[in-house]
Every structure is written in structure tokens, then in C-alpha cells.
Amino acid sequence: MEEQKRLAEELVEAKQRTVSRSEAKVKAETILEKVKSIYGELLEPREPVRNPEEMVRRLRQDYRLLVDRELVYLVVAAFLNGRPVLFEGPPGTGKTEVGEAILSLWSGKNAFVLPCSENYDEYRVIGDFHPLMAMKYGFNEESFIPRPLLAAVLLDAGVLVDEIRRSSEEFQNMLLDIVDKRRIIVPELRRVFRAKGLGFQVIFTSNPEDIAQNELSDAFLRRVVRVKFTYPSPEREAEIVRMRLSSTPRLPDHLLSTMIECVNELRSTATHKPGPADTVLWAQLAAKMAELRGSSTVSLDDVVSAARVVLFKRDEDADTVEEVVEKFFGK
């Protein structure tokens, strides 16, 4: 008799368990569907590239980015070991662009980019509740709005966290927990979302020289693999500019090398240091001006007037820039 009673109880319990499990399955699908309907369009899925050699080639060919082979190898090795990567270096050295491209190649889907600011928190990156819906239905799947980080975990895509130093320490710790364990907990939904494949990877970028921002904690730094970005050598910078520039109108070699010398000088003197991105923009602008003039070669005047637009960033640098431009171009 006793035995029967116990068995019956167990049966009821087991039934309840299966019911709740299947309910959970239904719920998981609804969230996944939500994510797909919101972010699916952005992903443009394609074949993932996980061979470093192939990656370097594709970066050059599809993204027009010159990236060191060693860097790509290191990033891939870190990914394979489940470690997030931190790109650190001065502004304009291509941290964000390279990071986004590598992530996109790696997971075969366009990467999510989270540009950080001080008041970023889990509600902005994981998910939020629609206030009115929450008042009406309570905190459940119905009122839940998934945000990029959760979407990336569910869709197996990469995430680029831009300018991590601008975010608060709390936020950094939360991110680390997620990246380390490859899962997101949403306590309001009583749910855990796990990453399914290797596609979900994180790259952080930061610029330690920028003022008015937070330091990164030891705990954070210990968990990431840090890759340092520096200004490229003059030859490499010339190569980068050439790659980014269309062939007409033609930019003469001597002008380009003087431009790079000029930019290098500014990097040592001005407070706002122009990166290779600025050099590229400068060259592009000069070329555009030549094109508008209807000329097939970029002239000295084009370069100088483009310099006036591109290189002046801060009031206090105005004199320095003027001096340097005059020194190199005589105007």
C-alpha cells in the first residue's frame, strides 16, 4: 500500500518535470524566433573561415585590410581556447575594423558591434522588458526584448565590444562571466541560454591613451589575450593607403611618402595623433579633389587643402599642424 502511494507520487512528479521541460522548449523557441525575426536580416550567413592563412587572404581581398599573419594566428589560437581578445592601441590603427572583419569571417555571419558608454548595462546588451507589456503581462517572454549580446549567443555570431574602457567595471565583469562560461542567465525569465557552436567569440577594443575613461581591472586583463596595435612603418602605411585608394586619379609616390612623413611628425608632436585611417582619408579626399578638378593626377595643392580639412582636429593643435604642413609641403 505504502509502496503504491510512493510510486504514484513519483509518477506525478515525473510528469510535472516533463511538462515543465517541454514548456521550456516551447519558450526557448519563442525567444529564438524573436531573435531571428529581429536580427536575422543583419547576419547574411555564409561559409565560416577558420583557417588563418585563408583568413589573411580574405581580409586582404574582401575587406581590403592588411593584417599581420602572426596577429591572425594568435587571435584564432585564442578563439580555439575560448579566450576573448583585447585589441589595444592608438586611435585610427584599424582595431575596430580588423576586429569586426575577423569575427565576421570566423563565424560566417556579420558580427555584432557594441559601442560602449558609461551607462551601458545588462539591460542594454542582453535584454530588456517592454515597460507597458511588463505592466500588463508581468516579466515573461511576452514582454522580453532580446538585445545584441543574447542574439549573438543564440545565433552563434561574433561580438565586437568597442572602447571597453568607457564602460563601467560592473559591465566588464558581467561580460567576462558570460564570455568565460559561454552562457547567459536571465533571472527574470528563470532561463539559461547557452552558446551552441564556436561561432560566438568576443573581441574588445580599447585605447589606453584616451583621457576621461576608466582603467581596466587586473581581473579583466588576466582573462583576455591582449594584442597590441601600433602605427605601421612608413612602407606599410603607404601600402595600406594604396590599397584603399582607387587607381584614378593617380597619387604620385613622392607625394604619398611626404604625406606619411608629415603624419609621422604629427604623431610625435600634436596632442591629437592622426592614425593610418586619417592618412587614408587624407589621400582619398585629395584624390576626390583632383577628380572634381578633372585632373588625372593628384597635385600638391590638392594634398595641402585636404590636409587643412583632415588634420585639424583640435584648437590647441592648430599651430603645430600648420607648422608641420608648411615644413613638409612649403605651403
Binding site: E70, L74, A77, L86, P208, L216, D218, L221, R226, V227
Partner: peptide
């Protein structure tokens, strides 16, 4: 370079 990326985290 690889070991540096893991060991050294600040300038």
C-alpha cells in the same frame, strides 16, 4: 609575441 599577449596586459 604570443606569451607577451597573455602575460603583459598594460603598457
Amino acid at each position: 609575441e604570443v606569451v607577451k599577449a597573455v602575460f603583459a596586459k598594460r603598457v
